[in-house]
Computed example of a mutant assay.
Amino acid sequence: MFKIGDKIFYPMHGAGEIKGIENKEVLGRTQPYYLINIPISNLNVMVPVKNAQKLGIRPLTDPTRLDEILITLHERQIDSDIPWKDRFKIIMEKIKSGNIQDTATIYKYLLDRSKEKTLNTNEKALLSKVHKFLISEICMIQNINENEAEHLLIS
């Protein structure tokens, strides 16, 4: 269970902070909800406490682990010989997992692919999405702004 002030990562949304835990009545049932602020999307969400784990909400990555992931980013690859439909399915599963290492792998793959040829519309949207997720988590872990996080990601 998270507490107020904990910094978390919410798959498909980005890094955020638990701003409150409140009991809310929904459909006649009262249960505790996390009130989460996700700054990169300018989003506030309420998530039932009991569903947090199922939704993949996790603590932010340890700063040391983040450094390891960024250092080894150039070594990651996704098999580009499989058809796009299958690659898309794999990519979406990895994004939904919320695993930062998987997100970094997807980012690297799509970035490299964009240097080889123009990305299709889906690939561009995915690249933008995973870039946003990485930047949001780096910002919160390192307590830095988006420009500084961008510099860490590309260096």
Score class of each variant (00 low, 15 high):
Phe2Ser: 02
Phe2Pro: 03
Lys3Val: 11
Lys3Arg: 13
Ile4Gln: 07
Gly5Cys: 02
Lys7Gln: 04
Ile8Gly: 02
Met12Phe: 05
Met12Tyr: 03
Met12Cys: 06
Met12Pro: 00
Ala15Ile: 10
Ala15Gly: 06
Gly16Lys: 06
Ile18His: 04
Val26Asp: 03
Arg29Asp: 11
Thr30Ser: 11
Leu35Phe: 07
Leu35Cys: 02
Asn37Trp: 14
Ile38Asp: 09
Ile38Gly: 02
Ser41Lys: 15
Leu43Pro: 09
Val45Thr: 13
Val47Asp: 08
Pro48Phe: 13
Asn51Trp: 01
Ala52Cys: 02
Ala52Glu: 03
Ile57Ser: 05
Ile57Gln: 11
Arg58Cys: 07
Pro59Thr: 10
Pro59Asp: 08
Pro59Asn: 11
Leu60Ile: 11
Leu60Gly: 11
Pro63Arg: 08
Thr64Cys: 03
Arg65His: 11
Leu66Asn: 05
Ile69Pro: 07
Ile71Asn: 14
Ile71Gly: 05
His74Ser: 13
His74Lys: 15
His74Cys: 02
Glu75Met: 10
Arg76Cys: 04
Arg76Leu: 03
Gln77Ser: 12
Ile78Lys: 01
Asp79Arg: 11
Ser80Gly: 05
Ser80His: 04
Ile82Lys: 12
Trp84Glu: 05
Asp86Met: 04
Asp86Thr: 10
Arg87His: 01
Ile90Leu: 15
Ile91Val: 15
Glu93Cys: 06
Lys96Thr: 02
Lys96Gly: 03
Ser97Asp: 06
Asn99Phe: 11
Ile100Thr: 14
Ile100Cys: 01
Gln101Lys: 14
Gln101Cys: 01
Thr103Met: 12
Tyr107Leu: 08
Lys108Arg: 15
Lys108His: 13
Lys108Ser: 07
Tyr109Met: 05
Leu110His: 08
Asp112His: 04
Arg113Met: 08
Lys115Val: 03
Lys117Cys: 05
Lys117Leu: 05
Lys117His: 09
Lys117Val: 11
Lys117Met: 08
Leu119Thr: 00
Asn122His: 08
Leu127Arg: 06
Ser128Gly: 14
Lys129Phe: 15
Ser136Ile: 05
Gln142Trp: 12
Asn143Ala: 15
Ile144Asn: 09
Glu146Asp: 13
Asn147Ile: 12
Asn147His: 10
Asn147Met: 15
Glu148His: 11
Ala149Trp: 13
Ala149Gly: 09
Glu150Thr: 13
Ile154Phe: 14
Ser155Glu: 14
